[in-house]
Computed example of a mutant assay.
Amino acid sequence: MNDVVTALAAAVPLASGWVWHGVVLRRRLAAARRDPLSGLPTRAVFEHRAARALARGPHAVLLLDLDGFKQLNDTFGHAAGDEAIRTVAARLGDALSDRRGGVAARLGGDEFAAVVPLPDAAVLPWLLGGLHGEVTAPFAYRGMTLAVGASIGACVTAELPAPSLPLALRRADEAMYAAKRAGGGWRIAGGPAPTCTTTAGRRTGRPGTHTPHRREAA
C-alpha cells in the first residue's frame, strides 16, 4: 500500500508538469496564428478561414490600405505608426464583430483584409461607408490627436463565376487602388474583369511585387 501511495505522490508533479506544458504549447500556437502588432490573424490563417467561409455562401471580400501612413511615420515616428496599426485593427474588428462568420487580418505593413458574410449585397455601401468612417477617425497618441486615411476595395463573391478567394482578392485589390487614385474612400469592384496582370496574387506594379525581368521599387 505504501508503495502505491509513494508512486502516486511521485506521479502528481509529473502530471502537473505535462498539463502546464500543454497549456504553454497551446498559448504559443495561438500566438503564432496572430500578428504580434495588430492582434489580428496572420495571412495564412486568414486565407484558410476565408476560403472555408466563401464556400458557405455569398460574402464580401475587402482590402484596406492606409493613406498617409508613411507621412505619419516620418513625422511622428514609428511608435505612432504602430499605434495607428493597432487602432485600425481594433476598429476593424469592432466593425465586424456583429457580423457572425466575418474574419479580418493584417496582411502586412499598412494593408488589411476581411471577409464578411453578405446575404444582401444592397447593404454593402452602408457597411463600407461605416467602416471607412471608423478606421479614419482620429486617435489619441501621447497627448496628440492623429489620423490616417484609408482606401477600401470590395468584391462581392456572388458576382464571381466561382467562390475563389484569389480572384476575389484580385478584384478587391483593383477596386481599392481605384479608390486610392480618386483620393481615398471606398469602391466596389464591378464591370469587366481587371485588365491588370498579377504577380503572386497581387496586382503587378504594386510595391513588393516583381516579375523575372523587372523589380519594382519598394
Rank of each mutant, 00 (worst) to 15 (best):
L92M: 12
T209F: 03
R27F: 00
G185C: 12
R206L: 11
G129Q: 06
A168E: 03
V45Q: 12
A158E: 15
A158C: 09
G22T: 06
A84R: 03
P119C: 01
S164A: 09
A7T: 12
A122Q: 13
Y177Q: 10
L167N: 00
R52D: 14
G108F: 00
C196I: 05
A200G: 11
P192R: 12
A158T: 10
L8V: 13
R181K: 14
G93D: 13
R142F: 01
A79Q: 11
T204N: 04
G129E: 12
V45W: 05
G185Y: 02
V12Y: 09
T209P: 06
A168H: 09
K70Q: 09
I188Q: 05
S16C: 13
R215G: 03
E83H: 07
A60R: 01
A50W: 05
P41M: 07
N73P: 01
G201P: 10
S97H: 15
S38C: 03
G93R: 14
P194I: 00
L64I: 14
A179R: 11
A168T: 07
A9G: 13
G184H: 06
V135F: 08
R106P: 08
R202H: 11
K70H: 04
A95R: 14
L8E: 12
A51T: 15
P117D: 01
I188M: 12
L29Q: 15
A53Y: 00
V23A: 10
D120H: 13
P36D: 06
A60G: 11
P207H: 11
I188V: 15
A179T: 08
L92P: 09
S38H: 06
R206M: 10
S38D: 04
G184E: 08
V45G: 06
G149Q: 12
A137R: 15
G153E: 02
R52N: 03
V19S: 12
R203V: 14
R99D: 05
R91T: 00
I85T: 09
R34P: 01
L124T: 11
A217T: 13
L29T: 08
